[in-house]
């Protein structure tokens, strides 16, 4: 879907991108992660030509991005940024519809599309007439996502979109986005410096440093990265623990039981990390109820699961 070949970019003396090769498949979510100044944002912005690269080639839909008119390229690619950048003088509806207006869509088609997008991002339809300053941070970000999706682009570029939100809202929006992505299967390039966000959302993580991709793999594989000192430093020594958040107790294939001591407040939809947290306070197994089925969870289940995904 997106191919980058030996892409370089220099700002004055600083090299932002030093020979990037990257293949992004259709429908996958690639998360670019790394410290400030590693070139992750530059890489993202070079795809929709917000930044022009110095050398190399970028192909989108099997065509060099140079061959598109730049506005045409950008309309084929959704774009979300950290500050959202909603247009303060326009209502929510007009914000979302701005490109549709330029493309001269019919009024009823616009209405329908806006309603579709709002309900998908779980925003009340009554919001269409609100102004951006009346929205909370999380709501504004959802509107930003709606706006990026308005023309139904198959590629979505997201530059630290949830970076400015408070932790609670951020997690909600992340989960909402994950749900949307499950339905829409967009090809997503996502930039963040938050390791947990990367683990939660990524199909593959690209760990970047000083303009190069150090490591490109699924989140599970990053568990074995200890040898690479830089990588494990950035991802954190508690990477395995963080990885648990990516999975739910349903992924563990737990045994159903009939006898139990006492129940804890978990369900199959809870993250493995939450499950582990409960285990830490229990001497042996813990039990929980999901839809009138009782499941047993122990350290061993989690250990076995980690072994399994490690060797997948």
């Amino acid at each position: 879907m997106i191919q980058l070949r030996n892409v370089t970019k220099k700002y004055d003396k600083q090299e932002a991108l030093r020979g990037i090769d990257l293949n992004i498949n259709e429908g996958e979510c690639i998360v670019l992660i790394g410290p400030s100044g590693c070139g992750k944002s530059s890489l993202l912005k070079s795809i929709n030509r917000m930044i022009d690269i110095d050398s190399g080639e970028i192909r989108v839909f099997n065509q060099s991005i140079e061959s598109y008119r730049v506005e045409e390229l950008r309309r084929k690619i959704g774009y979300c940024i950290q500050g959202v950048g909603l247009f303060p003088h326009l209502s929510v509806k007009e914000n979302i519809a701005i490109v549709l207006r330029v493309l001269k869509w019919k009024e009823e088609d616009i209405d329908q599309r806006v309603n579709e997008l709002l309900s998908m991002t779980e925003l009340p339809l009554s919001y269409i007439n609100k102004r951006p300053h009346e929205l909370s941070g999380g709501e504004a970000q959802r509107v930003g996502v709606c706006r990026a999706l308005a023309t139904n682009p198959s590629i979505l570029l997201m530059d630290e979109p949830f970076g400015a939100l408070d932790p609670l809202t951020r997690e909600k929006v992340q989960l909402a986005f994950k749900e949307i992505q499950k339905k829409l299967h967009k090809t997503v390039v996502f930039v963040t410096h938050d390791v947990e966000e990367a683990i939660l959302l990524a199909d593959r993580i690209a760990l970047m440093q000083e303009g190069k991709i150090l490591h490109l793999d699924t989140p599970n594989k990053f568990m074995n990265l200890d040898k690479n000192e830089y990588g494990s430093d950035f991802l954190g020594k508690d990477y395995s623990l963080r990885l648990l958040k990516r999975f739910t107790l349903a992924d563990l294939n737990l045994k159903e039981v009939r006898s139990f001591n006492s129940l804890v407040n978990l369900s199959l939809g809870s993250s493995v990390k939450d499950g582990l947290s409960y285990c830490l306070n229990a001497e042996q197994s813990i039990y929980f109820n999901d839809n009138n089925h009782i499941y047993e969870l122990s350290y061993n289940d989690i250990y076995n699961f980690m072994q399994r995904i490690n060797h997948e």
Binding site: N48, M50, V70, E71, E72, L73, R74, R75, Y79, I81, Q82, G83, V84, G85, L86, F87, P88, I98, V99, V102, G144, R147, A148, L157
Partner: peptide, 14 residues
Amino acid sequence: PSEVQEAAQGLGLT
């Protein structure tokens, strides 16, 4: 605001 300009540009407005 720069993010408003960036958004407008990134959405593909001439």
